[in-house]
């Protein structure tokens, strides 16, 4: 269920971020539904392929989108059930996202462009450091709630859980927010709107894609953002009434709140120097590690 909501609303979230940024800049901004329009338009266009590229370049967007969609099936939205859930599903989610990234990186290298190689090189560096942060943050939530599937983990994050494990959940939230920003190439880790290829990370990797391929990539990127936003929304909106529509609308509100937060961060923060990024990622892992230790310490309490 949650996956369907995510797929429908994912491109809208990107619109919300852009609107939030426009508001801060004093502009009207693009329509909220702009990303839907973009995708529809791209699907109607033809493609141009570089003569250097091979089947890897063509497979990249397809496999990436498929992996992201599979991963989205395991993401709960607050109290709304995930399509499938089993102990350890978040590990599969992390590695499916890894598969998506692996294919994007290879497609970028397939073009033989120096810029795309550079983006790919940065992407794999940040990804290697983000993965521990993501898993540690989810484990810290799991160790506070005592369950190991995403659905059960988030199903019990209610006001009571926040009262009992406030510190743990707060640190997990901050770590997850950092993971969300870096995984979705947002400020302060990457700038989706930069104009210079030298400074891009994710955008430069998909420079050569066009037409339906680019539509797949755009849709995949917005679903990925929605997935992380759903996890964060599950944390910051502790509404678990059991009534499906109450939970769903609360979680949806949380989803948009996360998008607004991302937009606000983008408006207020400068981008980090690229050398500082690894440090922030390590700090996010460390924060999640501290959260786990605190959860353990509370468990050991006499």
């Amino acid at each position: 269920m949650a996956a369907i909501i995510l797929l429908i609303f994912a491109p809208l979230l990107a619109g919300v971020i852009n609107r939030a940024k426009a508001f801060f800049a004093g502009r009207t901004g693009q329509p909220l539904l702009q990303v839907y329009f973009d995708i529809a338009k791209l699907l109607r266009k033809g493609v141009v392929y570089s003569r250097t590229t091979t089947w890897v370049f063509r497979a990249g967007p397809i496999v990436s989108l498929a992996a992201v969609l599979c991963a989205a099936c395991m993401i709960p939205l607050g109290g709304v059930r995930a399509l499938m859930s089993f102990p350890g599903d978040f590990i599969l989610v992390a590695y499916l996202l890894g598969l998506a990234r692996f294919m994007t990186v290879l497609a970028a290298l397939d073009t033989g462009s120096a810029f795309e190689g550079m983006g790919a090189s940065r992407e794999v560096q940040f990804a290697a450091l983000t993965e521990p942060a993501l898993l540690l943050a989810l484990i810290s939530i799991g160790s506070a709630t005592g369950d190991w599937s995403l659905h059960e983990m988030f199903a019990v994050v209610n006001a009571h859980a926040w009262a009992a494990h406030g510190a743990v959940l707060a640190m997990a939230t901050v770590a997850l927010l950092a993971v969300l920003l870096v995984e979705n190439s947002r400020v302060p880790f990457d700038d989706p709107n930069t104009h210079l290829e030298l400074t891009m990370i994710h955008e430069v990797m998909v420079l050569d894609h066009s037409g339906p391929d680019l539509a797949f990539i755009e849709f995949g990127a917005s679903v990925k953002f929605a997935m992380f936003a759903a996890l964060l929304s599950g944390l910051i909106v502790p509404v678990r009434t059991g009534l499906a529509w109450v939970d769903a609308s609360a979680a949806l509100a949380g989803l948009f709140a996360v998008a607004v937060v991302a937009g606000v961060i983008e408006s207020c923060m400068a981008r980090l120097r690229i050398l500082r990024v690894p440090q922030m990622l390590v700090a996010a892992s460390v924060l999640a590690g501290v959260a786990i230790l605190v959860a353990l310490a509370q468990g050991v309490a006499p």
Binding site: V47, R51, T52, S113, G211
Partner: peptide, 18 residues
């Protein structure tokens, strides 16, 4: 993708060199 591209132009060119 195949279905979409069967009706659209598929061109080949150089890698975008910025």
């Amino acid at each position: 993708r195949l279905v979409i591209l069967s009706k659209r132009p598929v061109d080949h060119g150089l890698t975008w060199d910025c």
